[in-house]
Structure formats: C-alpha cells, structure tokens
C-alpha cells in the first residue's frame, strides 16, 4: 500500500477509533515517567516521548503472568487455562523496542513455541513511531537499527511537523489502515525525503558504538580479569534486566495458599540475583557478582549471537541510564575492544 499521511489533529481520532475495536496500548505520562499502558482512548497519549522507562515487552512477555489455575475440590481436577488476550494495538513503539520483539520471537516462537507469548504476539498490531530525537544513552545504530525504520512493525508513523507520514509495512498494518482510511490521505510523494530529514538528528546525535570484532573477542574472554574488575561496583539489583527489552528469563511458581484452589504463574527473573542459579542442595554455579555480571554481557553480546545469529541488545540505553552504579554496556563494549 502506498504511503499515507495523517494530520496531527487527527491522531486522537485515530487512537479513539482504534480503541473502539481493540485494546489500545500506548505511552502515557504517569506520575512523571513515560510508561506503556492500556488506555481507553487517545486522551493523555504522548508520542513525543524519548524512551519509556520500561519497554513494551511487558505486553508480550508480562513481568508476571498466570499460566493456569486449578481447584482440587473439583472431582475432575481440571486445569483451567487462562484466557488469551483480546485483539490489541501497540501504538507508538520506538524502532529499538520493535526490534527487541523480533529478538524475543527467536526465543519464544522458534524451536520452543511458547503459547502464552504467541497468543499475544498474534493478536497485537504494532504501530511504531520513528525517532526525531534521541536520549543521551541511545545507540541503536550499533545494532543496525535506524531511528526511521522499524522492521517488525505493521505501521510506521514519522512525525513531519504538521503531519505524520504513515508507512504500511505488513498485511496486518494494511488492515488497520483500511479500517481507519477516512483519517488518512495519500502522501503527496514528499514524505520519504521529509522523513529522512526529520529522523536525521536522532541518527546524528546518538552514541556511535562499533561492534566490529566484539563477538569474536568475547569468544575468548570467559576467564578475562575484566569481569572481576567491572563487577565490583555491581550491587546485584535487577534494574538492568527488568528495564531491558530483550531480557526474557523467568521463573515458574505455584501458589495455593494452603487451600484446594491455586494457580501457577511465571514471572520475570534476573540473572543478576544470587538465587537465580541457586540449585536444590545449595549448589551455586554463579557464586559471585563476577559470574553474574559476565553472564549478562556475554548473553547479550556472545551467547545470543551463537544461538540466534543476532545480538541480544538493541541499544535502547535503558540499562545504562538506570544502573545505580553506572555499569554501562556501551562502555563495556569499548573496554572489551581495548583489553588485551
């Protein structure tokens, strides 16, 4: 489908229309921070935000998610599965966050098929929005992501000042666009060039990190003293992993409150926590901060590449901005290149 144009004053109408027949998930300002939340209408949705504190990953892989429930007093002992999600539109996701969903697909929708994830993925249409500006911690370019492209999105909006350029990227996007066609006009052909100009500052301003040779070097750095040195300042919290759009480790826990009724849930876990790898009997394969810090960076920059052919990081910059002790993955990448 040809590119469309959406007037700025029509955005709220578009959101309202989407919300009529879908669950709408969009960035809002909540107590001073930007978060993706389900919203009833376009009221309060912010599209000029730079980066949500927590990525929209939560709507595909919730931090906490019920898997099934049961009632043992029921003679059939039937397991009650959870209901799936309604049709949803994730509106206003940034290109890095969209890419992170493609990376999660490699984990949850490949060799092992995760029904919980796939249900949410299938029922969600993703409307991405290009970046005209970026945070001081952004470095998506290092991973081949561009502020003006959003592979994996169904529609891509770009703020051109007075209007949005709307690019239809998939069939799902085409369906959504067709349903709202009265709000769009056809792009007059100037959109593509205007988009390049609009997104240039984000490309220019972001940190330039070169990953050339990093993976190959890390292949031989498992026992490097750098990990011990860098991990000293880590306080072992889970901030980096919980604000990360690609971290996906989880734990599974049964809850039954000592009654016949109970449920099983899974919740995000963090490789930075000491009890993440603690095994029955007390064995601890990652006994200190050194092993845990190494694991995080190795997973992003080496193991993920080995397993899935892509880096497990999208350069969103959340972990380096939020780390209480300035353990900065961009700085780590540069150090990996420097050390002998």
């Amino acid at each position: 489908m040809a590119d469309k144009s959406l007037k700025k004053d029509q955005v709220k109408n578009l959101l309202n229309k989407i919300a009529q027949s879908n669950q709408l998930i969009a960035p809002i300002l909540s107590d001073g921070i930007t978060l993706f939340k389900p919203v009833q209408s376009g009221e309060g949705v912010v599209l000029d935000y730079q980066n949500a504190v927590v990525p929209p990953k939560d709507f595909f892989f919730p931090q906490s998610e019920k898997m099934f429930s049961y009632d043992m007093s029921d003679p059939s002992w039937a397991i009650k599965p959870e209901e799936g999600v309604p049709n949803r539109v994730l509106f206003g996701a940034r290109p890095c966050d969209v890419k992170s969903i493609l990376l999660l697909d490699k984990v949850f929708d490949a060799e092992f098929r995760d029904d919980f994830y796939i249900d949410k993925r299938n029922k969600t249409t993703i409307v991405a929005i290009s970046c005209n500006d970026c945070r001081h911690t952004c470095f998506c370019g290092a991973f081949g992501i561009s502020p003006g492209k959003a592979e994996g999105a169904d529609l891509l909006l770009t703020d051109l000042g007075d209007r949005y350029l709307v690019e239809v990227l998939t069939d799902k996007g085409e369906t959504l666009a067709a349903n709202c066609s009265d709000l769009f006009s056809n792009d007059d052909g100037s959109g593509a060039a205007a988009k390049e100009k609009a997104t240039a500052p984000a490309l220019e301003k972001q940190m330039k990190i070169d990953l050339e040779g990093v993976k190959a070097k890390l292949d031989n750095m498992f026992d490097h003293p750098m990990w011990a040195a860098e991990s000293l300042r880590c306080i072992g919290c889970g901030t980096c992993t919980f604000v990360c759009p690609t971290c996906h480790c989880f734990d599974i826990v049964d809850f039954n409150n000592q009654s016949s009724v109970g449920y099983r849930y899974r919740c995000a876990d963090s490789c930075q926590f000491a009890n993440f790898t603690r095994a029955a009997g007390g064995h601890q394969p990652r006994p200190s901060k050194m092993e845990r810090t190494r694991q995080r960076f190795m997973h992003k920059l080496r193991y993920f590449v080995d397993r899935y052919g892509d880096f497990g990081c999208v350069g969103c910059g959340r972990c380096l901005e939020k780390c209480p002790v300035n353990l900065d993955i961009a700085q780590i990448i540069n150090k990996v290149k420097e050390v002998g």
């Binding site: 107590d31 978060l35 306080i235 919290c237 889970g238 919980f242 604000v243 963090s270 000491a274 209480p324």
Partner: peptide
C-alpha cells in the same frame, strides 16, 4: 497503591541500602 503498582521489584532500593544487611533477605 498507585506508586507500588509500578514497582518492578528490581530490589535496587534494598541492595543499595546500608540498613539492609540481613544474611538472607526475607524477600529472597
């Protein structure tokens, strides 16, 4: 409740706290 609702339980508050010194934290 609105504030606690957005807690992601990263435990950064606990881990940085000089008063939080239990050998095993009750939350672990």
């Amino acid at each position: 409740l609105s504030q606690f609702g957005r807690c992601i339980r990263c435990y950064a508050c606990r881990n940085t706290c000089p008063g939080c010194t239990c050998r095993e934290c009750v939350f672990d």
